[in-house]
Design a binder for these strands. Sequence first.
RNA 1: GCGCCUCUAGCUCAAUGGUAGAGCAGUGGACUUUUAAUCCAUUGGUUCUGGGUUCGAGCCCCAGGGGGCGCACCA
Length: 509
Amino acid sequence: MNESPDASPDAESDLLSGSGLEAEKAKRLAKLDDIRTNGNNPYPYRFDRTHTLSEVRAEHGELEPGTETAARVSIAGRMMLKREQGKLIFATVRDRSDEIQLFVSKAIVGDQAFTDIGNLDLGDWVGVEGIVMTTRKGELSVRVDSLQLLSKALRPLPDKWKGLTDTDTRYRQRYTDLIVNEEARRTFQVRHAVISSFRRTLHGHGYIEVETPMLHLEAGGAHARPFITHHNTLDMTLYLRIALELHLKRLIVGGMERVFEIGRVFRNEGISTRHNPEFTMMESYQAFADCSDVIALTEELIVNAARDAIGTTVVTIDDHTVDLAQPWRQARMIDLVEDAIGVAVHPSQPLEKLRAVAGDHGVSCAPRWGTGKIIEELFEATAEHKLVLPTFVTGHPVEISPLARADRNDPHLTERFELFVGRRELANGYSELNDPVEQRIRFQDEQLAKDAGDDEANGVDEDYLRALEFGLPPTGGLGIGMDRVVMLLSGVHSIKEVILFPTLRPEVF
RNA sequence: GCGCCUCUAGCUCAAUGGUAGAGCAGUGGACUUUUAAUCCAUUGGUUCUGGGUUCGAGCCCCAGGGGGCGCACCA
């Protein structure tokens, strides 16, 4: 006997007659005991199936109503619905590929098996052997000859019709979300297809996939606050990476010519519908290419991903129907600002003039901001929110682009772009700065900002400079936020919908 | 970090400050072609937590917690 006071016979019978969660679990645990008492294992080690459910449907989907075939199949899945009807039981089982109906006849399986099947609970995993048939109404079914419990579910599923809508529970118990919400399954299928498509496109262009460190001595390549960690044996501070850029360009120095990485980066910043502390970036670098090649690649990657993941290039962005296959707009940042405010801006203008323009448009400038930073802030305040249709914003000021090469026609701007879709930044790329002397000056400017208290600024990365001194060929680089691409293509509005286990506060049990 | 909204049965939701309810799930019963099966009966509650106001609080007030949205942050 269980020594727990809760397990006294009275308490146990109370539990078995009730219907709260604890009572439900108690009933199902009691069923487990019965199964074991009868010499069966409720958690067998394996099951051989001959068909996935979609394969059954593909082979037999055209049967006339009331057909019984001779086709014998073994299938496996989770029981989602059960309809008992006297000496018949209809049940719906689902595997990854599809759903199918089980047709259970007491006359065929026998009294004991019929009782056992009737005792199954929604959520249980089952393996079934039987023949393929259709009912009088034409529903494709497997007529059960034998059924084996593959794993017992102790908890009840959410409402079979209303499902699970509580966002907190959906994110914390993603397994439950995936069981009951078709949309969730579809979103993560889209995510898989997008990532797979990116790899295919890049491989098609001769890119090599690489993996670079996540633990960095210096968190560079982007402007963000890092997560800080510690290595015990080496007794040193390490930073989780905030970008992939600097290691990948070292590989271009090494002669790998075309490399990419799809991987997690970590930024110790706020959480919103567009930001998760860990998210997935794709970065690619191509020797002998420049910004214009990268723009073309970006468009190709996303258009291919749309075709591969959702079967169309037509997506809905806010209320607009957009065909991504149409060429995307390109516009310089300074021109977008001028369009928005009617005043021409340029980083070469006097600082005081730009500060005044910024003030006119509600942008308050920090003392250390230069003209380039002010222009970026003006852009974000006045123009960025208009960029619903895919737009490559180009020509960012040098000041805010420490790793990008200066425009060949304008030393104050860079050969850089950011892609905006639906007001969200999706991608960022440029002609890479490969002059080590110039790069050192840019790093030193960053270091000054860092020393002045900017905890998102990077210091001087001496090893990266050493690499550049061995010669980085002309290179075009690209970074794409994969989560946001998935959001675009799957039509969801929160990044938490495309991350299986988004960052949440700890749950209290 | 700030503002607004939200939290009731396993799930989805009700309930003028006046006995906490429904549907689904569960349990018992009927039913050999159901489709969210149907029909009859039925179990199930620390109303997120802690204070307060009140004769009386799921509801009003205060504090705290979780979540959502917006802002801030965000190359």
